[in-house]
Nucleic acid binder design. Structure first.
Lengths: 197, 197
DNA sequence: CACTAATTTTAATCCGGATTAAAATTTTCG
DNA sequence: CGAAAATTTTAATCCGGATTAAAATTAGTG
């Protein structure tokens, strides 16, 4: 079976998922150029060449990591929106979920630092998803302003600030559960405090 | 004259500074592995090999970019502290200065995404400076809490959030002056709002 | 057990971009 | 102008890590 095969077995998918997490951890901690496929492979008790059984190459690996990151961001925002409530409440819930995803059992989420080195199609796809996510979050802020739950503010810039704070998490969070608790408790609180009318 | 020579002329220093900015722009926009020395050289109308007249190599170039970033962070914080006032006021002033540095005429400031790929001595130096800067900012927040100008909060986490928001700026700011204005106006406001008692 | 598919390894190859050396050009300044 | 220093280029070399191919091992299945 080739790695592009969609009829993958359960064990295959599991290992592929573990591969993506290991890669995300490496990329976040050692940088893209700083991590060789060997580094990633070692974490799974494999040889570098074995990775090619699961993925087409290093670029593809980055792409998959970014897709996974995009999935998580989208899912947390969608869930927060689905749960309903005021704009403020939705934004806060999203932050809770997303910070928890970063610090919790979702394992490391890749920082999108190497989008430009992706293949053109992949690059466009990731960029589009990334922008869409930002626009969706900004829409939540807009709703909050309209329903009076969020102070009138520059939505684009405020969104940039919040996204930056969250996206930066992997830079200082390295798995310590005590720190995870602090983050989950503090981040949504602090970031939303500045949005109260 | 060798690039390690300290008795450098004015023109040499100027060009070296331009080199660092060009490199920071490339690294921020195309990632470390995504930018070749040729990319950087082209921005200065030079050939890739010419870069070695100003810098020992790619690692050294990254190191210098990071040192420059550290300098700017330190300088803005020092200035804010020197100007005095409550903890809240100092923190706010620091944010104004630092955001302005990111978006203004200081040119692009490198995001420290590739610290692990530095040479060990350089890596340690950058890490130390980076940690020191964080601790210094946290100290400002502590002062604010003590003097009653800042709400009681988890200083470490709040600092992480603020630093993340600021450090992420180069991800979305690409030189548009109108955007720069928005950022300078919005960022300190929003980020400090959450700290009011 | 024997046979086939799945998984991993070993052992090359390959290649882009960093680096170097020497030559050429430009600048400085008497 | 002309010599020495400064700057840049041209033309290799060099190398680490990605990638590939084929062989070996392991797991599943009748």
């Amino acid at each position: 079976m080739t790695s592009a095969n969609s009829g993958a077995t359960r064990a295959f998918d599991d290992k592929r998922e573990r591969l993506l997490r290991a890669a995300a951890r490496c990329f976040n901690e050692k940088g893209y150029s700083g991590t060789s496929l060997k580094d990633v492979a070692i974490q799974l008790g494999l040889t570098d060449a074995a990775i090619y059984y699961y993925i087409a190459g290093k670029q593809e690996l980055v792409y998959q990591c970014y897709m996974r990151a995009a999935d998580i961001g989208q899912r947390t925002l969608d869930q927060a929106i689905a749960e309903g409530g005021s704009g403020f409440h939705v934004a806060r819930r999203y932050l809770e979920l997303h910070v928890a995803a970063h610090c919790g059992n979702e394992g490391p989420i890749a920082i999108m630092s190497e989008i430009p080195s992706l293949a053109p199609e992949h690059r466009e796809e990731i960029l589009t998803r990334s922008r869409t996510h930002s626009r969706n979050f900004e829409a939540v802020l807009h709703h909050g302003i309209d329903d009076g739950s969020i102070v009138d503010c520059d939505v684009r810039m405020t969104g940039n600030a919040i996204m930056g704070a969250v996206n930066w998490i992997p830079k200082w969070f390295h798995g310590d559960p005590a720190v995870a608790e602090d983050a989950v408790r503090t981040f949504p609180d602090y970031l939303m405090r500045g949005l109260k009318p």
